[in-house]
Amino acid sequence: MEPYYSEAGISIYHGDCRDVIPSLSRCQVKLVLTDPPFSERTHAGARTNRLNERSRPFIGFASMTEGEIAEVFSLCATNLQGWLISFVDWRHMSYLETCPPIGLRFVRFGIWDKPNGTPQISGDRPAMGWEAIAILHTENGRMRWNGGGRRAVWSCYREHRAVHRTQKPLSLVKQLAAMFSKPGDLILDPFMGSGTSLRAAKEVGCHAIGIEISERNCEIAANRLRQGVLF
């Protein structure tokens, strides 16, 4: 399968990751770093506090069930040697812990703390202000990371100049890439979005493969990599 974009150890594939991942069987992936769609309930409940956007759907792409996500993670595990780190809907976390994807073991529940998270628009309850991070590792092999004994809590401001609705901050994704890989490793993102994980991989000296079902997002990610845009 030919990549949509490829330059200096970074490649983008346009398509459904469930179709693309089997074609990457010769690649020795050291880290899967990704952000799959959340549950239907979370997508439906997502809101913005911008007056001119409150009547519009905040998330326009399809949701995924915990079973569908586990299926993709199992595919990733077939050529993974190391960690799988994923932002996930908190509703999906317990499923991943009790029913780990084939070839993976659940290690830890991490948290992204958002100091500038969206306030509770209704004002009748506390806002959430965080996202879950699933930390898994391949069943075989010793676990190693570069974070020492630090907590699995990362505090980072949300991205203000986002080009994707659920875009994660580059500084946060860079931290995760640096902690769970080493320079020269290959990082895979089966839900690439606008390419933040690829940009982060490039910044920490890793190779990367991104897979994205939206051609528009593939082009956005390719432009970010071409132009060296630091967001």
Rank of each mutant, 00 (worst) to 15 (best):
S63N: 08
M64Q: 09
M64S: 09
T65H: 09
E66H: 10
E66F: 06
E68D: 04
E68W: 02
A70H: 00
E71D: 15
F73G: 01
S74E: 06
L75M: 13
C76W: 01
C76M: 06
A77Y: 09
A77W: 13
A77P: 02
T78N: 11
T78C: 07
L80F: 12
L80S: 13
L80Y: 09
Q81I: 07
Q81A: 13
Q81L: 03
G82E: 05
G82R: 08
G82N: 03
G82F: 07
W83F: 11
W83M: 08
W83A: 05
L84M: 12
L84N: 08
L84K: 11
L84G: 04
I85A: 05
I85E: 01
S86N: 02
F87P: 00
V88C: 02
V88G: 02
D89K: 07
W90Y: 15
R91S: 03
R91C: 01
H92E: 01
H92D: 01
H92G: 07
M93T: 10
M93R: 09
Y95A: 02
E97C: 12
C99Y: 15
P100S: 09
P100H: 04
R105E: 14
R105M: 06
F106Y: 15
R108I: 05
R108K: 15
G110F: 11
I111A: 12
I111S: 08
W112E: 03
K114I: 12
N116S: 07
T118C: 11
T118P: 01
T118A: 13
P119Y: 08
P119T: 04
Q120Y: 12
I121Y: 05
I121Q: 09
S122R: 14
S122Q: 10
S122I: 03
S122L: 07
D124E: 02
D124V: 08
D124A: 12
D124L: 00
D124Y: 06
R125A: 14
P126Y: 13
P126A: 07
A127V: 06
M128T: 15
W130Y: 14
W130S: 13
W130K: 10
W130M: 09
A132T: 14
A132N: 05
I133L: 03
A134M: 00
A134N: 03
I135G: 05
L136M: 15
H137L: 05
H137M: 07
T138N: 04
T138L: 00
E139A: 08
E139M: 13
N140V: 13
N140K: 15
G141C: 03
R142K: 12
R142S: 06
M143W: 02
R144H: 15
W145I: 07
W145Q: 07
W145E: 00
G147F: 01
G148K: 08
R150K: 14
R150P: 04
R151A: 15
R151K: 12
A152R: 01
V153P: 00
V153Y: 11
S155I: 06
S155D: 02
S155K: 06
C156A: 10
Y157M: 13
Y157L: 10
R158L: 15
E159Y: 01
H160E: 10
H160T: 14
